[in-house]
Amino acid sequence: MTTTHTSIRDQPARTAAALSHPGLIRLITEIDDHGPVPNTLARVFPDLPRHQIRHARDTARDLGLIDTDHHTYRLTDRGTALADLYDQAARWARAHDHPARDSSFVTRVQATFDHLTRAARNGETAASGTGHLLDALLGLSGTTPAVAYRPLSEAA
């Protein structure tokens, strides 16, 4: 019984870990902001190493966040829900200068997800005004530990 309680309690952390990769945040946000992107992602993200692009693409596919045809990637309904959560998380962080006033969008999302996991562990989401964000994060918690903990390959 303790194992089940622990796994439910750790679900926000596992989900946040799977969804906090900078490349994934940028991929989902790019598609949300500009529509389908060509499957030649290196052209869309010239500043990211290829292994980070592959990791983001593979994670997005594995989690059912993107669909592809032969030429483009587009968001699924689940991907659109995640893009909305990223936007809400960044807005909350900006309103609270979290983690800092001049943080980037990616950093704000990551810091908010980190805040959510700590607050959920301590039962403090209502006090911090992030209960709705935690609910949205848990709504996306269909990740499996194998996906959530997939290591980022350092190979180019």
Rank of each mutant, 00 (worst) to 15 (best):
T130F: 02
A148G: 13
G64N: 05
D32M: 02
A120G: 01
V147R: 13
S7D: 08
S128A: 15
V147Y: 03
P145E: 12
H51I: 04
L82E: 03
L48P: 01
S103N: 04
L152I: 12
D32W: 02
A119T: 05
D58L: 06
R118N: 06
H70T: 12
D69R: 06
F113M: 15
G142T: 11
L134H: 05
G131I: 07
I28D: 01
D32T: 01
L116S: 03
L138W: 00
V44E: 09
L152T: 09
L134S: 01
L75C: 08
G23Y: 00
V106L: 09
T107Q: 14
R61P: 00
L134Y: 01
A18G: 13
A119Y: 00
F45G: 05
Y73P: 01
D102A: 15
T143V: 15
A148F: 09
Y149G: 11
D10L: 15
Y149Q: 11
P22E: 06
T3G: 08
D69W: 02
R94G: 06
A136C: 01
N122F: 12
T29G: 10
R118V: 10
E124T: 09
I31N: 02
S153F: 05
L63P: 01
G23C: 01
A120N: 05
P36G: 04
V37K: 02
P99F: 01
H71D: 14
T3P: 01
Q110K: 15
H5W: 08
R9K: 15
R9H: 13
N122W: 11
R91K: 12
T125L: 07
G129F: 09
T143S: 15
S20I: 01
L82W: 05
A127R: 09
D114K: 11
D77F: 10
S7P: 00
G129R: 08
D69C: 04
A95E: 07
D33Y: 00
S141D: 13
L75M: 14
I25T: 03
L65V: 00
L63E: 06
M1L: 14
P36L: 07
A155G: 09
R9P: 02
L133D: 05
N39C: 07
T76C: 06
R108F: 03
L140N: 03
L75F: 04
H96T: 14
R43S: 10
T112A: 11
T107G: 08
L75P: 03
H98W: 15
T72A: 12
P99I: 04
A13K: 07
D87P: 01
H55T: 04
T68W: 02
G131S: 15
E30Y: 00
L152P: 04
R121N: 10
H51Y: 10
V106S: 10
R57K: 09
D84K: 14
T76P: 02
G123D: 08
A42S: 13
A13T: 09
P12F: 11
P151C: 06
R78I: 01
P99M: 07
S103L: 06
S7C: 08
T107C: 13
R108L: 08
